[in-house]
Design a binder for these strands. Structure first.
Lengths: 222, 222
DNA sequence: GCAAAAGTGTTCCAGATACACCCATGT
DNA sequence: ACATGGGTGTATCTGGAACACTTTTGC
């Protein structure tokens, strides 16, 4: 294993699949490309890995640059490196996924006049590069993790109702869940606390508000 | 997102954590480094990603070059990219793990006079680079996959006994399993077939031999 | 009073666990 | 005959799934 020449090195980037729940749908954050290749198409936020930057930091920075959001759950997903994935030349992308609670969405569209926005996962158009594949893998991973971790809590704001939490599960798994079984299950996790507050939300009984006991922590269960 | 200069690009490598079961222990394949850095220390097999090579192919090639073994189970694990992980300069390694059945072990140590060998996972010395960490992550992933996939069958040769299969589980999970419950469970997977043969193996009752129904396939269960 | 979402328990089933003895062979 | 690993069944426990009615509010 000898040192390879710089001339043959691939470019290394990170991309982030940012999920949130909004308008009762699972959505993700896309950026419109301002230059070729794929100029004008929507793509995942991302960027080149800086000289002295850890991969996680690079992904976090890509996310912050496009959204202004920091401190959200971020996890490495998979590394994509098909030789033809970038028409400009050899490129490797370390893909991440992130979960942001609906409250933190303070998109700073104005900042660099980039067009960015939230798109429903189930009405996604073709994206730049291999980004559709990244989205697919991220969604799969997220759905799998619901079953054996407390990752869904990363979507929740400080105070939330159990119905809202159930919606998160239902939208990610794409199936309706039983209300009683669901409540039993999430309360048994011992990771959310009832508060004294309720939320009045329409012409029906107010909903009790809950809070996450250890925000930022994701536990493996079962 | 503009094209970054070649001068700042990291080197990209793959490394492979190759597991097998041998001498009743979970072992992995290591190569002794012939040059600095970490000259003389043991390291995971690996190499630079070639100009027109897919990441999977690169890992497979690294494995073949060191062992002569091909066609084994290989899966991407995680990408390691701490800025200081290689003292020579910025480097990113896409780590894989591989499972080889004990029969396929035809190490061609002679081929390029590299020192290579199998080492018990639980008596591992400090390795070069961040390779101990890679091993740790690979072992964790492997143990987790036992619970929800048929991945353990990738360790088995064409014909094997249920006791041998049980040993695979026990060595990976590091715990003893109940013989009757184990057999019930693996037979219920409907992925292994009884053969008409038995193996005479010592001064005791011969063991029935089984074969994997779909070798090469790993199914997700539960 | 009625529409609409919030809240609440019990029964049933399947899969996991715990557990002990006989079998076939080599020496 | 005895030592050694191979092979087998049942009772129990536990977590998941199915399922319907009452409560509180706004209008």
């Amino acid at each position: 294993m000898t040192r390879n020449p710089r001339s043959s090195r691939p470019a290394v980037t990170t991309n982030v699949v940012v999920f949130t729940l909004r308008d009762d749908k699972l959505k993700l954050l896309l950026v419109r490309r301002r230059s070729d290749p794929y100029k004008g198409m929507w793509a995942l936020p991302g960027g080149y890995v800086e000289a002295d930057e850890d991969l996680d930091d690079s992904a976090m920075r890509a996310l912050e640059d496009s959204t202004g959001v920091a401190g959200v759950y971020l996890e490495q997903l998979y590394t994509f490196g098909a030789p033809d994935r970038d028409p400009r030349g050899r490129s490797i992308s370390v893909a991440y996924y992130a979960l942001v609670p609906s409250e933190k969405l303070q998109l700073r569209t104005a900042s660099d006049s980039e067009a960015i926005g939230w798109f429903a996962l189930d009405e996604l158009e073709p994206l730049a590069f291999d980004h559709n594949e990244m989205v697919h893998v991220a969604h799969q991973r997220l759905a799998a993790k619901l079953a054996y971790s407390t990752i869904a809590l990363q979507f929740m704001p400080q105070k939330f109702t159990l119905s809202e939490l159930q919606k998160v599960y239902e939208r990610i798994l794409n199936e309706k869940l039983d209300k009683r079984n669901f409540r039993k299950r999430v309360l048994a996790l011992d990771q959310i606390d009832q508060t004294q507050e309720v939320r009045r939300n329409g012409s029906h009984r107010p909903a009790r508000l809950y809070s996450v006991r250890n925000p930022g922590e994701v536990q493996i269960i079962r």
